[in-house]
Write a protein that binds this DNA or RNA. Structure first.
Lengths: 227, 227
DNA sequence: ACCTGAACACCGTTCAAGT
DNA sequence: ACCTGAACACCGTTCAAGT
């Protein structure tokens, strides 16, 4: 029901509903209560409106999520090139900004990443900082293209893992060590050896640290592949 | 309803239902009709059984999907080390096998990748071939650990993109050139330059080729980071 | 044009009752 | 122990009717 509880067209200038207002309310629900709380009926209730009113501004639920994806990527601040800094750092900064933008709405990011249309549609613009950095690195177009694809895919996969876990860091050790030691003998010998060599302390996984290590690996790979 | 259409416990040895039988039917539905076709009621119908019967073998729908994730990774054949081949090729083979296993059930892979419990639970064993290869490469334990994380994250992200395109009902091959040329001037200059330099033919994206390029980049990165 | 109420065709899951 | 039927509390979306 609306504010007056009456059907019919609202007075001119009243404009209780709009695409932007609907998306803002939807984003709020997703951020506060999670993805599956965002139903059309719940969204309508949050707006104080009949569920069907939404359909006059957005064709269906998928369109709501597509709109939310836009909002997420709109939060991706342009990465200004560091004055005089090495292009390698610029690549890393682009990746850091990309990760930060998606982490700003953790409940939504998983949906954005697995929604085909959302990803492909919006990546076109958000990928520019990577191209800028690699172009400045003097790489040939083909190498730039492949490198950006690789690094963006990595960030997507990294976020998949990171957002699936609650805390910023978590103890791999109790889980992993136990699990590895429970394995049938010789089932995963190399994994067992590495886990034992690292020990419990070495397995305390830190997502920020893991991200940085991977960026270094990737940038090194770009350099040695292109050079 | 069951075969007889009657309630009550089946005769001994009759055993119409089992966890394995339920999961097999569920996998069939997902493969044939897609993820969202796999509802508890649809699954029951496929088994010729009352929807509620399933709950005696699996606690809920999430457990069904978790069971399906196991099946997917069970399809990951052990990668035998190439006799006398370089360890770099062994790393690539591990990644190829991992990708192939997930692509064997494309409709399910997206679900598996975004399901936290599924991924972390099962990765423990499936990750062994990567550890074996990198250990043979003589890398220190820490470098092995970071490298495997990076490459697995990349494969996840790559699959996200690859399977999204395939799963998309409309808008199959997004024409990057068109989209870039429609952009406001100076919005993405570096991207525009690269796209123009590559031309239409150079942008016909081939997932197999893209995957191989990325693997080379990653292996080079591993080498130069550890060495 | 914009909003509403009722209705349709579904969901996952609980519960009590059958054998 | 295993299966069933009815029921509960939801869904997304269509449609006709209001102003």
């Amino acid at each position: 029901m609306n504010t007056a509880g009456k059907p019919g067209r609202p007075r001119t200038g009243e404009q209780r509903l709009s695409r932007a207002a609907i998306l803002a309310a939807a984003l709020r629900i997703v951020d506060d209560e999670g993805l599956e709380a965002m139903t059309m009926r719940r969204l309508a209730a949050a707006l104080g409106v009949n569920p069907m009113s939404i359909y006059h501004h957005l064709p269906n639920k998928a369109a709501v999520f597509a709109g939310l994806a836009e909002l997420v990527f709109a939060g991706l601040d342009d990465v200004r090139p560091r004055p005089g800094g090495p292009w390698q750092d610029e690549v890393k900064d682009a990746a850091r900004a990309y990760r930060a933008a998606l982490k700003a709405h953790p409940n939504l990011a998983l949906q954005v990443l697995s929604d085909p249309s959302a990803v492909s549609d919006v990546v076109v613009v958000t990928v520019e900082p990577f191209y800028r950095a690699l172009e400045r690195g003097g790489l040939p177009p083909r190498a730039i293209f492949e490198s950006v694809n690789t690094i963006v895919d990595f960030v997507h996969g990294f976020l998949l893992g990171e957002l699936s876990v609650r805390a910023a860091t978590f103890e791999l050790a109790p889980d992993l060590v136990d699990r590895v030691q429970k394995l049938p003998d010789g089932k995963a010998p190399a994994l067992t050896r590495v886990v034992n060599a690292l020990g419990r302390d070495g397995l305390h996984y830190d997502f920020d640290g893991g991200f940085e290590s991977a960026l270094t690996l990737l940038v090194n790979g770009i350099e040695s592949t292109a050079g």
